[in-house]
Amino acid sequence: MIFWKRTVPLALAFFFGVLMIVQYFIPHEWFENLLDTMARWGQIVGAFGLVVGIASLTHSHYFKIKRRVPGWGYSIVTLASLVIYVVIGFLTECDDSPNAPFGWGYLYILMPMQASMFSLLAFFVASAAYKAFRARTIEATVLLIVAIVVMLARVPIGSYIYENIPRIGEWIFAYPNMAARRAIMLGVALATVATSLRVIVGIERSYLGGGD
């Protein structure tokens, strides 16, 4: 069992990991075709990811309903919506014109609901900004001033208050912000390389599951 559960996956990870690194540096037709094939395999795996996601959602909400956990009524709505929309999609061949049921549901149910949820952020951001943005220390004061400048720079009224506000905002984005972001990105990139190498050589095995 260990051979199938551990040795084979580790060997596959090593083989394909090394292969994909090598192909990146050799622009030969054979490697181009290999990458093409790998990309198609990746898409198939991605499609199965959707199936796994739907199965996981169904499983999770089914047990919430079965155990009558608080809010189980919402789980019924979730599962009913999932089933109804999938059935409508199959029956109408996912016709998303506004007059077809599939398109109508998207346009008049999903779109306003998602947009409304996101719009609520405006209210909570305002409330959170009032509570959190306090100039208690020098660092907090700098953060506060920069936040106000950027907020004004991101709207046209900023240039009515002071004409150079958009330019100052752009400078903050292009220099201090960029320097900090680049440092973070370099750190993340190096960590990604290190983790990838650990997976390829078999040191990092958490993807095998079971805490092995």
């Binding site: 405006a122 951001v125 305002a126 900004a129 009032y130 509570k131 943005f133 306090r134 100039a135 208690r136 506060l144 936040a147 106000i148 907020m151 004004l152 991101r154 709207v155 046209p156 009224i157 900023g158």
Partner: peptide
């Protein structure tokens, strides 16, 4: 939608300033 966003940013800034004056 730029003007509603402008005024909402101003309101947020006003509340932030108010909070700091109180502090």
């Amino acid at each position: 939608n730029m003007s509603p966003q402008s005024f909402s940013h101003l309101v947020i800034i006003a509340f932030v300033i108010l909070g700091n004056i109180a502090l």
